[in-house]
Design a protein around this nucleic acid. Sequence first.
DNA 1: TCGTATAGTTAAGCGCTTTTAACTAATAAA
DNA 2: TTTATTAGTTAAAAGCGCTTAACTATACGA
Lengths: 169, 169
Amino acid sequence: MTIPDKFTLVLRDWSETFMRRSMRDFVQFSKDSGLTLPQMSTLFHLHHGSSCGVSDVGELLGVTNAAASQMVDRLVQYELIERTEDPVDRRMKQLKLTNKGRAIVQDSIEARKRWMAKLTNAITPDEQISIITALTILTNAAHDLEPEINQVGNSEKHNQAKNDISVQN
Amino acid sequence: MTIPDKFTLVLRDWSETFMRRSMRDFVQFSKDSGLTLPQMSTLFHLHHGSSCGVSDVGELLGVTNAAASQMVDRLVQYELIERTEDPVDRRMKQLKLTNKGRAIVQDSIEARKRWMAKLTNAITPDEQISIITALTILTNAAHDLEPEINQVGNSEKHNQAKNDISVQN
DNA sequence: TCGTATAGTTAAGCGCTTTTAACTAATAAA
DNA sequence: TTTATTAGTTAAAAGCGCTTAACTATACGA
């Protein structure tokens, strides 16, 4: 078996494990919050990418503007997001998380952090160092595969920054 | 910043990148197949865990038996899964993927494989070796965190086997 | 200024998911 | 054997997500 073959195999194995776990948690958390997956995804998108318009949400979810508009409307009714007019182009709306919405996202992030902390405890510092290097390479490579999507300000250099958290000092 | 802190940060970063990508693909693929997320999840569960009953599906999705039963019924109508009586306990049903159902799952897996192949190409063999080691440790640690859930036959030793794909030969 | 494109909303309608409640059938326990 | 438990189905009702189509309002180009 060649190294690339093994690599792919290991990557697949890890991603299966990881995906199953993450998806389950995400779905569970959404349910507990009384939200659907699209709604939760929208909240996360807003949390990650700051403000955006209704059609951005539609694009994110792969649905029509009408669908996005209705979803947004529900989230506004729940007081999880705030919908205001864009002063420079009054056709557009600016969508932002309310404190209530942000709290939900934070809770979910905290839950994931707890899992990661458990994972961290199960791994020795020496192993952690090598994993840090490995994941940094992986993350940067994944980013480079689709420059448009990742990160908020998506107009700057790739491959160098972002995850360049060196361990040696 | 301590190593565990950095580790958690890097892990979080990678998982965000990876999750966003995977979720998007999964949702997209489900849509393209004309299936909902719960339906797709069910197919994957069956693919992964061989045969199971209706209530297992309910448990997986976190819904009542009634809901699971109706979902299963739809998938049976679509001829994606096969529902037969368990001969030893005739109250139970055995759910299995049909060829049609398996094909859909395989397609989705192929799609992910293609992404991973691209990722593989973006990484040098030397880097791959270190990542293989790192991910193997991570995967095993994650498995050990929840022994009940991972893997089909869940009655044997952990931490040693499963991902012990050594690179050195 | 007039026409067109863009951003978003609204309404009608359909399908899926979900729950509760009532039910059938088979097994296990008394 | 009688009773209780377990597995699953069915029906009714509600909610959400989605699409299409028709609409309002703003911005922009000729």
